[in-house]
Simulated assay, not measured.
Amino acid sequence: MTRRPPNEYSDAAENNAPFIQRFWIYQRERFPLAAHAVMIAAFSFSAVSYSRISRGVAGFIAWPDFLVGAFTTFTLFLLVRIFDEFKDAKDDAMHRKELPVPRGLISLDELKSVGVVVFVAQVAINLLFFPKMLLTYGVVIIYLCLMGKEFFVADWLKKRPFWYVTSHMVIIPLIDIYASGLDWLLAGVDAPDGMLFFFAVSFMNGIVLEIGRKIRNPSDEKIGVDTYSHMLGPKRATKLWMAVLAVTWVLSVAASYYAGYGTLAFAILTVIFMTSCIPAILFLTGMNSKRAKAMELTAAGWTVAMYLSLGGIPMLEQLFSR
């Protein structure tokens, strides 16, 4: 498939640049490597850390193992992004012509090649370092492929936003199982009971991110672009986002209990929750584009804070106190 012909959003200099330059522009817009690296590193480190703390095992896993696992989780999320480009190609061509693929910056064939290279690298590196992880990895890939096909019920899902977002967010705890498995699975033991709550937090964090990035100020809504603020109205969508935050907060408290954290952890999680609600409250009292964007940024900050609070920071405290 060749690149799409230029449209009103195209930049001839960018479209005619070498692939590396064009892919750099693509990632900046659709999958910022630096920002995602921070979030996914926190995700992976915290999943492993929470598992070890819940099992009562001191210290961290071997760093080479972690780096291989972190590479896999990071590139799995990149594959999710690439699969989404194929899944959304028709809608993007009609309603989001400013995006890289519709404006001819990069083609789906080129993204497919990137995906194939990433997949081969993932299989090779896991086969080399820990073949035991390939089964868990394979489950993630199979689910990702089903997502790419909208589980063969695309029309049904499109009419049912709840089931759409629910089915797509399952990929996050599946990747979490892989990440945490770098501890318990490679150690040959069962996952600690608290991991169920940690996986639930991961699932809900995905919904926090999904809803948070799809709440718009009414003047920023675009025809043909599905947002929660369009489907539910901005006030109902914002209240839904706050409700999802509250559920995630409750699950995070349960996860902290199973890890043996004390009242300080409960207090910290509560402060994070209350602080994260502020942008939503401000948006409800006076809607504008900046406040809508603040909710999206808060969703990302909330996600990082949850992971660091539940696993990353307690592990760092343990490592530096030794």
Rank of each mutant, 00 (worst) to 15 (best):
R3P: 02
N7C: 10
A13T: 14
A13P: 05
R22P: 02
W24K: 13
Q27C: 14
R30T: 08
M39T: 09
S46A: 12
V48S: 00
S49L: 06
S49W: 03
R52H: 07
R55F: 13
A58D: 15
A58H: 14
F60E: 03
A62Y: 11
W63D: 07
F66H: 05
F71Y: 15
F77M: 08
L79E: 08
L79A: 06
L79C: 11
I82Q: 04
F83L: 12
A93E: 12
K97P: 02
P100S: 09
V101D: 01
L108C: 08
G115K: 05
G115V: 08
V118S: 04
F119R: 06
V120S: 07
A121G: 10
A121I: 11
Q122R: 01
I125Q: 04
P131A: 12
L134D: 03
K149L: 14
A154M: 10
L157N: 04
W163H: 10
Y164M: 14
V170K: 03
L174G: 00
D176R: 03
G181W: 00
A191C: 12
P192R: 00
M204E: 04
E210F: 03
R213D: 06
P218S: 10
S219D: 15
E221V: 05
K222S: 11
K222D: 10
G224Q: 07
D226T: 14
Y228K: 06
S229A: 12
K235G: 09
K239H: 11
W241R: 01
T248Q: 03
V250H: 02
A254W: 03
V271W: 09
P279N: 06
F283A: 02
L284Q: 05
N288F: 02
N288P: 00
M295V: 07
L308W: 03
S309C: 10
L310Q: 00
G311W: 00
G311V: 01
G312R: 00
G312P: 01
I313T: 08
P314W: 01
S321H: 12
